[in-house]
Nucleic acid binder design. Structure first.
Length: 272
DNA sequence: CAACCGCCCTGGGAGC
DNA sequence: TGCTCCCAGGGCGGTT
């Protein structure tokens, strides 16, 4: 399930392989993903990939004519393949850089491919304009989290997932961060103290950084562009561990459902 | 605006 | 063995 660390792993892979290379061909096999892939993505054919950026969970591939914006949804991954190799099931689009190509593999097709014409600021794109701050940026502080959570009656878990305050924290890393901060997922965001926010900001950065170092989480579908699996899922404290002993205090980990989504927590370690 | 819910999609697992 | 049902969940759109 691609969250920020998985997208970052993918970005690093694309950057190391294809930046400065010429995108020789684009082939769309399944134009209908989350939204239809716009014809305009073809405009970058024949151009050099200038840089690979990430904003939230979006991968931004910059060319002189514009930016290709890729979202991996919840089952997407980019794969490196020889440009002429046979299409595999669930591979929807191919970007060839000479003999080597990159394909989007996404069984559930919750991912998307969009195009931003050059000259439009990334931040002004409707999908990007309402996003919160990047967790690794200087703007992500305890005070920022505190301010954003004022008046927010939603649970702190839902608050983190919304991405209005900070982006990139999905279901796995929200549960893990709240565990490390000792905060129950069901607690109202509005009731977080300054100290809670300080702790939460600190552990979110740590969890995400550790996940990037672990190559991300490969629970079901995710792998890096060379097929390498992440191993963060083996070191989670609570995520997907309902009924198992808490790694810290041996209490049984609980699973609850919030906003139709699973949350995991230790009732002993998370009392706040 | 906030809160909430339904929907998109497929594979995998449980239960019968 | 195969069927049916349910679940995984990010993000958007509609409603209250």
């Amino acid at each position: 399930m691609p969250e920020l660390p998985e997208v970052e792993i993918t970005r690093l892979g694309v950057e190391s392989r294809f930046v400065e290379k010429c995108l020789t061909n684009i082939e769309i096999r399944q134009p209908m993903l989350r939204w239809p892939i716009p014809e305009a993505v073809k405009q970058v054919e024949g151009l050099r990939l200038e840089s690979a950026q990430r904003r939230s969970k979006y991968l931004l591939l910059n060319f002189s004519a514009g930016t290709v914006m890729i979202h991996l949804g919840m089952s997407g991954a980019l794969r490196i393949v020889p440009a002429t190799s046979a299409w595999q099931k669930h591979e929807h689009i191919q970007w060839s850089f000479g003999d080597l190509a990159m394909r989007l593999h996404d069984p559930r097709r919750f991912g998307s491919v969009d195009f931003l014409v050059a000259g439009t600021e990334h931040a002004r794109h409707p999908r990007l304009s309402h996003l919160g701050v990047e967790p690794f940026s200087e703007a992500f502080t305890a005070e920022h989290l505190f301010k954003c959570s004022r008046g927010r009656k939603v649970s702190v878990k839902a608050f983190l997932l919304q991405g209005h305050a900070v982006v990139g924290v999905g279901n796995i890393y929200a549960s893990e961060s709240l565990f490390r901060a000792g905060i129950r997922p069901g607690r109202s965001a509005s009731r977080l103290s300054r100290a809670d926010c300080a702790k939460l900001a600190e552990v979110i950065k740590a969890v995400l950084r550790e996940a990037v170092e672990a190559g991300g989480s490969s629970l079901r579908d995710f792998s890096g562009i060379d097929g390498e699996l992440g191993h963060f899922q083996n070191q989670t404290f609570v995520y997907d561990r309902q009924g198992l002993d808490c790694r810290v205090c041996k209490t049984s980990v609980r699973r609850i459902v919030q906003n139709q989504r699973s949350s995991f927590y230790c009732p002993e370690c998370q009392k706040k």
